[in-house]
């Protein structure tokens, strides 16, 4: 029995390690090549960045560029604020949708779901005009508003799916205890759906962090540039500074990676605490 278990566990690890290698290999290549000169990248893509091939230039052009901290700051502000708004409004709206019956709730649900169906990008011109009318061109606020609108429908969609499974008895017993609806939401429902919140957070933050379209059109100004837009300066019509692109985008992955780790801890903690309460 014990031997068999050990074999199974070795087998499982073998599968997981094999897939890890598949997932990591291209990433390793990205990091290796971000430390090489452009020529060395193409001369031998798998070669290690040693000797002549080594070049710090890519990172130098990112780190010595005094604007990059600003770009990172902008990206972080936009991503974090949009994420917060998406999670807050998303969770509240879906709680309302799954919990209360009110006139037009199906309509409202459908209306929100409609939002996921058309890439918001289509309305770019219309959105830009709206943003200009509101005097928000070249502000981070414009980006935050658009991203929140873009992320909300899917967030509501996922939340609603999961909230349906939150048992009614728990909420009802809380109600009998005399908790206000707000407290039910924040103290009962939110802890229960913590894993989902983490999931939605991760799900929503990636497209926001990596988006190029809206920064390009809504806020291309020097002061409001995001990281992805900043990286574009290395991509020319005929010549691309791949060293710098790889370096800047390797650095750019770190903040989202940190956020991911934070959220996935939430996921686990949420599940264990949820289990205790449930």
């Amino acid at each position: 029995m014990l031997v068999r278990e050990r074999i199974t566990s070795t087998g499982i690890h073998a599968v997981l390690i094999a897939y890890s290698m598949l997932a990591l290999f291209p990433l390793v290549l990205i990091v290796i090549n971000s430390l090489k000169s452009k020529k060395a990248i193409f001369r031998d893509p798998t070669g290690l960045p040693v000797g002549e091939a080594f070049s710090w230039k890519g990172y130098a052009s990112v780190l010595t560029n005094s604007d990059f901290p600003l770009y990172f700051g902008n990206s972080l502000i936009v991503t974090c604020v949009s994420l917060f708004l998406i999670l807050l409004f998303g969770a509240m709206a879906s709680h309302a949708l799954s919990e209360y019956r009110f006139p037009g709730d199906t309509f409202l649900g459908l209306y929100l779901i409609l939002g996921i169906m058309v890439p918001i990008r289509l309305g770019t011109v219309a959105l830009l005009q709206l943003v200009v009318d509101l005097n928000l061109a070249n502000t981070l606020t414009a980006l935050i508003l658009v991203y929140t609108a873009q992320g909300l429908p899917i967030a509501i969609f996922i939340f609603t799916e999961f909230l349906k499974s939150v048992s009614r008895e728990i909420k009802d017993s809380a109600r009998i205890d005399g908790l206000s609806e707000y407290r039910i939401f924040f103290e009962v429902v939110v802890p229960l759906v913590r894993p989902v919140i983490a999931t939605v957070a991760v799900f929503s933050m990636i497209p926001i962090w990596n988006d190029l379209c809206f920064p390009l059109i809504l806020s291309p100004g020097e002061e409001t540039r995001t990281v992805t837009l900043g990286v574009q300066q290395f991509i020319g019509q005929y010549t691309v500074n791949w060293g710098a692109v790889l370096a800047s985008l390797s650095v750019a992955i770190l903040p989202v990676l940190i956020m991911y780790v934070i959220f996935s801890k939430q996921l686990i903690r949420g599940i264990t605490s949820g289990a205790v309460k449930g």
């Binding site: 890890s20 997932a23 990433l27 290549l29 990205i30 990596n210 990286v231 985008l249 996935s264």
Partner: peptide, 19 residues
């Protein structure tokens, strides 16, 4: 493992396309 499996998702398509 979970973090490793998730890493590619965090990347921008520009680098994914390139690599």
């Amino acid at each position: 493992y979970r973090t490793i499996f998730f890493l590619p998702t965090l990347l921008s398509v520009v680098v994914v396309g390139f690599i």
